[in-house]
Every structure is written in C-alpha cells, then in structure tokens.
C-alpha cells in the first residue's frame, strides 16, 4: 500500500500536529476527523436529507384519506401535526435513526482500511487511543447533529403542514399546543441514548469487520431484528435488555400521569451497550497490526 487513493481528504499536517512536532492532542485530532467528515459528500447529503425529507413525508401522510391507525399516533396523524411528528418518531426509531448514525459511525474506522491509510494516520500524527476517541467523538457528534436536525425538521414540517387539532395523549387526554411542543421535542430528544448505543455498535462493527458496507448496513439490520424480537410478547426479559426498546421509552412522557421508568431503564441499557461496544472496539484498535495493511 504505497499509493493513497484520492477520495480521502488528506487534510494536511498543520491541525494534526501539536506544537514542537509532538503527537497531536485529542482536540486537534478531533478537528481533523470533523474536517474529514464535513468534506465527505455522503455526510452532507445525509444532513440535507434529514432536513428536507420530513417535508414530503409529512405531506404524504397528511394527504392520506385513511389515517394509519395500526401505528401509535397514526389515528390522529392526518388531523393533528403533533400526532404526525410522533408517528414519524415511531418509524424513525425503528430503522431510520440507527441507519443514519451508522452512515458515519459504521464508516469512520473502516474507511481507513478501505483507503489503506492506517499507517499514515498512526505513524505520522497521533497515538491510537487519541485517534480512537477522536473518531468516536466525531461519530457521536454527528449522531447528535443528525437527531437534532431530523427532529427539528420533522416537528416543524408536521406542525406547519399537518392538521391543527390538539394532541391526543396516551391516556386519551387532550394536550394543549404549548405543552405539546415541549413533550414532542422531549420525546424526540429521549431517543438520543439508544441512538448513541447504536453509534457505538456501528463503531464496533466498523472496527471488527473493517468493512464500511457491514458497518453501515449491519446496525440498521440488527436494529430491525431487535425490534421484531422485542415485539414478541413472550420474550419480555429479552425486550428489556435490547437497545431498541429505549426508542419507545418516550411513551411515558405522553400519558397522564407521566411515567419515566422506561426512560431511566433505557438510559442504563443504552449506556451498557455503548460501553461494551466501545470497550471491545478500543481493544481491537489497540491490538491491531497495521504494518501489514
């Protein structure tokens, strides 16, 4: 591997090198990783899609003559924009969010394999731990940004383009617009812990398989399988420990009285999954032999 393929944005040495030519610190390496991400067309397209796609989705669902009653909040999705935003949140948690975060997290390590650049980044600029955490932080940051963009775009387009009826909560109660905005935004925000768990899972798969295709597709596919398994009523114990279950923890915010047990449980489950996946990925990166590749 002597030639460097063109697609890797070879951001020059200056931000990666610390003072006096020593290995760069975490901040510098993070800045370097972020610049590499921002330079990728794929990342820009995903962010743009997260911003724009909710508009046609909201329009398409509102225009249906029969509301999608078989899904939670589908019953009033055509008459209430708040319901529409929560219906889309339900679908997003099932597969869209794991897929969106994997597009970066599932590629951030394996792209170095694809381009054969491990030796370049490790021998010249920084240590493995610093590089590992910089990449994880960059992927985490992208997850936060994509959730914020998708959530804000969905809520805005649903409320502006959907029906004007008030939100019907999960205890049958009617929720006023002011409170509905807070609750719907909180519901979207509550999917961050499982989203970060999937980010860590994508990082692990990216590190372990050294394949971007697997890193991007596998977490989304795993998420779908977990959703199906979690929906089986007979596997209650398994459901509790799956990282897909916290994607539904926001239901408790919309009942009266509210319950937050699943949110706390989801936070713990997500943290365990993220910690375990990152720990394994870290060991794999530390022990990896890059001299051959």
């Amino acid at each position: 591997m002597t030639t460097l393929p063109a697609p890797t944005p070879t951001v020059a040495t200056s931000p990666a090198h610390g003072p006096a030519g020593r290995a760069a610190g975490l901040g510098a390496v993070l800045a370097w990783e972020v610049r590499k991400l921002v330079a990728q067309l794929r990342v820009r397209v995903v962010l743009l899609a997260a911003l724009v796609v909710p508009v046609p989705v909201a329009l398409a669902i509102s225009a249906q003559s029969q509301p999608p009653k078989d899904t939670l909040f589908g019953r009033y999705a055509t008459t209430s924009g708040w319901s529409l935003a929560l219906l889309i949140l339900g679908f997003a948690g099932q597969w869209a969010l794991p897929l969106l975060t994997s597009i970066v997290a599932g590629d951030v390590f394996s792209s170095e394999d694809q381009h054969g650049t491990w030796k370049t980044v490790l021998t010249r600029s920084t240590g493995r731990s610093t590089l590992f955490w910089a990449k994880v932080l960059a992927a985490t940051g992208f997850a936060v940004v994509v959730l914020a963009v998708l959530g804000a775009a969905t809520i805005a387009s649903s409320v502006l383009l959907g029906g004007g009826a008030p939100l019907t909560g999960l205890s049958g109660q009617t929720i006023g617009d002011g409170q509905a905005l807070v609750l719907v935004a909180a519901a979207w925000a509550s999917t961050l812990p499982p989203l970060l768990a999937f980010t860590a899972l994508a990082v692990l798969i990216s590190v372990a398989t050294r394949s971007s295709a697997a890193g991007i597709a596998a977490p989304a596919a795993l998420g779908l399988v977990m959703q199906l398994v979690g929906a089986l009523g007979s596997l209650q114990g398994l459901r509790t420990v799956l990282p897909t279950t916290p994607f539904e923890a926001w239901h408790g915010l919309l009942t009266a009285p509210r319950f937050t047990g699943p949110l706390v449980e989801g936070l713990v489950v997500s943290a365990v999954w993220a910690a375990a996946a990152l720990a394994i990925a870290y060991v794999l990166v530390r022990r990896r032999d890059v001299t051959g590749g």
């Binding site: 899972l201 798969i205 372990a208 398989t209 050294r210 394949s211 697997a214 596998a218 795993l222 399988v225 977990m226 398994v229 596997l235 114990g237 398994l238 509790t240 420990v241 799956l242």
Partner: peptide, 20 residues
C-alpha cells in the same frame, strides 16, 4: 471477518436475552 463479527453480535444478544 464480517460473518464472524455479526454472528458474535447475535450470540451476545441471544445470551443477554437468555440471562434476562
């Protein structure tokens, strides 16, 4: 490598579920 990793992931999920 990909298959081994994915099989391991599924095994971990299964084991966690069995314990739970």
């Amino acid at each position: 490598r990909i298959l081994i990793t994915l099989a391991l992931c599924l095994a971990v999920v299964g084991a966690a579920g069995a314990v739970a």
